[in-house]
């Protein structure tokens, strides 16, 4: 596949394509270096990804929008854990489980505080007042049922942050008053991995594998069915279950491959899951 030919053809149809591709990410501005020539690997997955980026909605890559989206999810999580702590069922949990939830709740509260500061610092109006719907919470009539929702929220959070990582790619470091200089992508990823630790622990509390295994009791839930499902076995264009696809003689099972990668949820997919949970 000749990647540059495709670009040329696209440019004939859409003269702005190079501008669309270029401005935020310097992918094409320095193709001279060996490493960056990997951008020309011209695999279908790579092409698809780049063109999705180039033609994504006009808000793609707006840090205020991205961090407010993250803040909305953190507000929802934070309020959920506050309701958990205030629930009569909390006292029925073991001391260790209570300590874990208290710790996670503290994290979510500080993520809310941090993201609020960041959104303000980059000139936006921070999201606020997002709460977990009281009537829905009232249907969770045991600590175990509350933990189910916690697992879904945490795994969804992981997948939501992941879904926006490439929108933060190439955005310059920014100085946030009261926080210091941050790299927006790195900061988001440093929350992302903490959310993954939460998800792992809650799954362990529920006797599930720490990772999304495809055999857990909730793994059929809508949260795990984005356009790219958690059962996906193709990464970077390689179907990793194909016999000998990478290493001659070695075949990985679909379950093992799927367990090794977390997939993304797009913003519309995430909001479709989260919005029904948000309310007074």
């Amino acid at each position: 596949m000749n990647f540059l030919n495709i670009l040329t053809q696209l440019a004939e149809v859409d003269p702005d394509v190079l501008d669309r591709l270029n401005p935020r990410r310097a992918v094409f501005s320095s193709l001279g270096t060996v490493a960056k020539r990997s951008a020309m690997a011209a695999t279908p997955v790579l092409l698809a990804s780049m063109f999705q980026k180039a033609y994504a909605g006009t808000n793609a890559g707006d840090p205020v929008e991205i961090f407010n989206y993250a803040l909305t999810l953190e507000l929802l999580e934070s309020d959920f854990y506050k309701k958990m702590q205030a629930s009569p069922f909390f006292a029925t949990a073991s001391a260790a489980d209570q300590a874990a939830i208290n710790q996670i709740a503290k994290h979510e509260a500080s993520h809310v505080s941090l993201l609020t500061t960041v959104v303000k610092g980059i000139g936006g109006t921070p999201a606020a007042g997002v709460t977990f719907k009281t009537t829905t919470f009232a249907t969770l009539t045991s600590f175990a049922k509350q933990l189910e929702i916690a697992q879904l929220l945490e795994d969804t959070g992981v997948r939501a942050y992941k879904g926006r990582a490439t929108d933060l790619q190439g955005i310059a470091d920014v100085n946030i008053p009261g926080v210091g200089t941050i790299n927006p992508l790195e900061s988001a990823l440093r929350i992302h991995s903490v959310e993954a630790r939460h998800a792992a622990h809650i799954r362990t509390m529920r006797m599930q594998t720490a990772w999304i295994s495809g055999s857990g009791d909730l793994d059929g839930a809508d949260n795990y069915k984005g356009a790219t499902p958690e059962s996906n076995v193709t990464q970077a264009g390689f179907n990793l279950t194909t016999a000998g696809i990478i290493t001659p003689g070695v075949t990985y099972t679909a379950a093992d491959v799927a367990a090794s990668f977390d997939e993304i949820l797009t913003k519309p997919e995430t909001l479709a899951l989260a919005t029904p949970l948000i309310g007074a």
Binding site: V158, K162, A165, L189, H192, S193, V194, E195, A196, R197, A199, A200, R203, A210, W211, Q235, A259, S260, F261, D262, E263, I264
Partner: peptide, 9 residues
């Protein structure tokens, strides 16, 4: 990003 969250798990 797909790998790092599993490493965190």
């Amino acid at each position: 990003a797909k790998i790092v969250s599993v490493k965190a798990r």
